[in-house]
Design a binder for these strands. Sequence first.
DNA 1: AACCCATGTGTACGAGCGTACACAACATCT
DNA 2: AGATGTTGTGTACGCTCGTACACATGGGTT
Lengths: 182, 182
Amino acid sequence: MPRRHDPERRQRIIDAAIRVVGSKGIAGLSHRSVAAEADVPLGSTTYHFRTLDELMVAALRQTNEGFAKMVASCGGLEDPRADLAAELAGWIGEWLSGDRTGVELEYELYLAALRRPALRPVAAEWAEGVAELLSPRTDPVTARALVAVVDGICLQVLLTGVPYDEEYARELLGRVLAGAAD
Amino acid sequence: MPRRHDPERRQRIIDAAIRVVGSKGIAGLSHRSVAAEADVPLGSTTYHFRTLDELMVAALRQTNEGFAKMVASCGGLEDPRADLAAELAGWIGEWLSGDRTGVELEYELYLAALRRPALRPVAAEWAEGVAELLSPRTDPVTARALVAVVDGICLQVLLTGVPYDEEYARELLGRVLAGAAD
DNA sequence: AACCCATGTGTACGAGCGTACACAACATCT
DNA sequence: AGATGTTGTGTACGCTCGTACACATGGGTT
């Protein structure tokens, strides 16, 4: 067998797991499906990740990091005093308008924490991370509130199938910000 | 075999499915597990519900109805001009403080709509239903916003494990209501 | 009474699953 | 160079799953 000593094996397995969740959902995630997607033998996935929970933790953490990088590179959030509500609403719009796959993937991993305690710390890290990104622009309580509202808005779109209404989002986020201690 | 001509068979299967999701999660839902829980043969579940999606639709619809009845019997929401934000915050607190199982069950079925288009209309019905319950107290846009915010708050608690902060919820809901067209 | 079809029952098949384990190969340390 | 432990590979076991199908039963219609 050719492929011996593959130092990035673990990373490639994580990437494959993310692709699998993206295409088949968490229900389609198994050691075998990941092994096939990563083109490694079955034993290799079970070796690097004893349980699927471990693999999901790694996958969720990686998507979180990717998300943070995306936002950071997008920059916007650090402008001095632009309309934060409008900025956020527009940014949600961009996110939701793209390939639904990407959003579904991140939310599916995120929501999986409901039943999998192992994922909860990672989900908490994400919420905290986004709140921190917002912190230069508002107080901590408002930042946390914005995260909750963004989640609520996105979920309504994703779960009920109603189209995203950017003006509605801007209005709602604006109300939350209007109550912020200045 | 004794149990022939069982007119409530279908209903008992739905009830069993809800219990199974409550105890083992959607991942543990199968024709077989439901059949065992309902104490009916395997063929019976596959006969009444050709696919698991069908069964989940019925289960989600039933939990929605149960929820509506609960709120209706709880009454509160129809008081003339009490503080709606405080009322909602208190009500979320009650909901989250009880057995986590019940909340998990409803949210798990609700969130399953992310990957199962068949569930989306039912999820939409739920959001619309709650918004309607709120409609005597505020305008439609604010009602929808409140639903989103409640979802966001509950999810933060359920997904990240941070304890529920009723005062924070009241403050946030209050901000949303403060912007409502009177 | 005869018929028919919705409903109920039991069993079997093939597929995919997690897990376990024995063995191979290589990197690293002594 | 040789020992050692991490990493990679292949295979097999036992289990649960959805699905299909043949047959039993009995209520409702004609």
